[in-house]
């Protein structure tokens, strides 16, 4: 599930509210929860156990041999693995970029410009479009000598021309740019909705104190939606780790020479293109460890937010 979409609800109540005591403990809740537990058990429980087990084996399906920790040694010796890990970390730079841009746009929208709903609706649109299809378009837009380059040339800005997807120093910026393009609208919608809820009295009080527009934004508006911003940042960070495969697959295939490889691609490639299930599983275990750290931060922030409100 796309983590991004969860943002909205993250803030809702999570501590159980006290309920009137029930007379007897019923059985039906068990039956009602059971299908969900089974679904989670198969998809997540079974997979966690198996992925750890496979990470100690070499060979392909049906012909697996136990090799101990050799797969872990192998991936840490594999420059593509470290490259993939680093690229995921580099793509985290998109998170502050998206957050700041979205915040800025949301603040502007919040001034109640004419047509703000239409603007917001259009800016949000890329977020729901399939990355596969949009990536195809971007591959033509960004390839060396492609559409972007010819637009730059026509605009007399030839010095900006690059092989956006073929140059190792630019390729991650290009992928990051497409991610920003797609995610920006999500941030704008989330932040502008939050800003609508800032009580008018607070703003009015600041204005009476003589604060200008900027000062109000920075000292009143932004702090008021601080928690929302925190959630957004974490969710985007998780997305940067776990849902960039499509962009890489469609735009560059991780090239040139691994320079745009990410963890998802590394796992896909080793597990399914090279048929090295053990190597893929070892990489998946490392990825899960990193994701767990993010999840822990996520749960901690949520808990803190609930306490704030209590």
């Amino acid at each position: 599930m796309s983590v991004g979409t969860t943002m909205a609800h993250v803030h809702a109540e999570s501590i159980p509210t006290p309920r009137p005591a029930r007379r007897r403990r019923a059985r039906w809740p068990v039956a009602y929860v059971a299908p969900a537990v089974i679904a989670l058990g198969v998809t997540f429980g079974y997979s966690f156990v198996e992925v750890v087990r496979y990470s100690f084996y070499a060979g392909s399906l049906g012909a697996l041999t136990y090799v101990g920790g050799a797969n872990y040694t192998a991936i840490f010796q594999d420059p593509q693995f470290t490259h993939s890990l680093l690229d995921n970390l580099k793509l985290l730079i998109t998170v502050p970029v998206i957050t700041l841009l979205a915040l800025g746009v949301a603040l502007v929208i919040n001034t109640g410009l004419r047509g703000w709903r239409a603007y917001r609706a259009i800016i949000f649109l890329p977020y729901i479009l399939p990355a596969t299809a949009m990536g195809l378009a971007f591959s033509y837009l960004l390839q060396g000598g492609g559409v972007l380059d010819s637009l730059l040339r026509d605009a007399g800005m030839s010095f900006l021309i690059h092989d956006w997807l073929g140059s190792p120093s630019w390729v991650l910026f290009s992928i990051g740019g497409v991610i920003v393009w797609q995610q920006l609208g999500f941030g704008v919608v989330v932040f502008s909705a939050a800003l609508l809820n800032v009580p008018a009295e607070i703003i009015e009080a600041a204005r009476l104190d003589g604060a200008g527009w900027w000062r109000i934004q920075v000292s009143v508006m932004v702090p008021y939606i601080k928690r929302i911003i925190e959630f957004f940042v974490i969710l985007e960070a998780i997305a940067a780790l776990s849902s960039v495969f499509t962009y890489v697959y469609v735009l560059t295939g991780a090239g040139p020479a691994y320079s745009s490889s990410v963890m998802e691609f590394y796992i896909y490639q080793n597990g399914f293109e090279n048929g090295a299930i053990g190597v893929a599983s070892a990489a998946a275990v490392v990825l899960l460890a990193i994701a767990s750290a993010l999840i822990a931060i996520f749960l901690w922030v949520r808990t803190r937010a609930s306490k704030d409100r209590a």
Binding site: L40, S47, V49, V51, L241, E264, G271, F272, A284, L287
Partner: peptide, 25 residues
């Protein structure tokens, strides 16, 4: 509450990490 928290945690699991076991299944 444990069930709810488990669900929240699982939302952030990268699907690719489940790919090999689900494929073999």
């Amino acid at each position: 509450e444990l069930f709810v928290r488990t669900n929240i945690a699982l939302m952030a699991i990268p699907p690719v990490a489940l790919l090999v076991p689900m494929y073999t299944l």
